[in-house]
Amino acid sequence: MIEVENVYFTYPNGVEALKGASLKIKNGDFVAIMGENGAGKTTLVKHFNGLLKATRGTVLIDGVDTTKVSVAKLARKVGFVFQNPDSQLFSETVEQEIAFGLKNFGFKEKTIKSRVTWALKLLDLAQYRKTSPFMLSGGERKRVALASVLAWNPKILILDEPTIGQDHRQKEKLLQFILQMKTQRKTIIIVTHDVEFVAECNPRVLLMRQGKITADGEARKVLTNPEILIQASIVPPQITQIFLRLSDFGLPKEVIDIYEAREELLNFLERKVK
């Protein structure tokens, strides 16, 4: 459970990145935090594992104030995968890279081995066990970074811009992976501005603008509300854009998914024939 109460944060250079953000994320929630660059998304999630400490207000993780414990302690519970895998890869082999976190948290040698194997399999990296992470392609490096965090099985998983620079196939894989985590009741938080991706996985959406949370609700509700979206510099998903222009026919506006769109259109035409 993450509880953020009226948090303000100012960087040492004087930039005020958070101006009174409040929110609650329950265990097992799947949340997408959206907004334009500089809206404070990454700043906000960096409070969840203590990398940043609120200038004012409180952040509680399972009731524990993040200012009172170390990043290492929080990280055990809150896994954070950075946007660019190259900010963390340094080991000689993929296997060692994945073991890094486990070693830092003091897992036993035997557990480390089994966890590494588990994570390699989960992200389809088993054939690269002994390969240098630097030899892999961008998409594979991203998966290694994800595996290296997932290895210690954190309760909460934060993914910063997971779809950036990814092609369609890689996004599909990521989507499958997230849905799988969701069924395991893991709390998942993604920071993104990829509306099409969010429309496909249909999470709870938090919109941010100028350090504040301006909307909080189901993707279906938030992403189909042009007034709210425009403030956060987000364009509605393509399917929604079509339906926003058809609303005078009495078709619903809250459509984000292509199969749902088909359903609505076919129903409409059928009714018309009758």
Binding site: S70, A72, F82, F105
Partner: peptide, 13 residues
């Protein structure tokens, strides 16, 4: 700074 944050997030002290 980003790299330091990323490694701290993996338990590096």
């Amino acid at each position: 700074q980003t790299i330091m944050d990323a490694q701290k997030a993996r338990g590096l002290e």
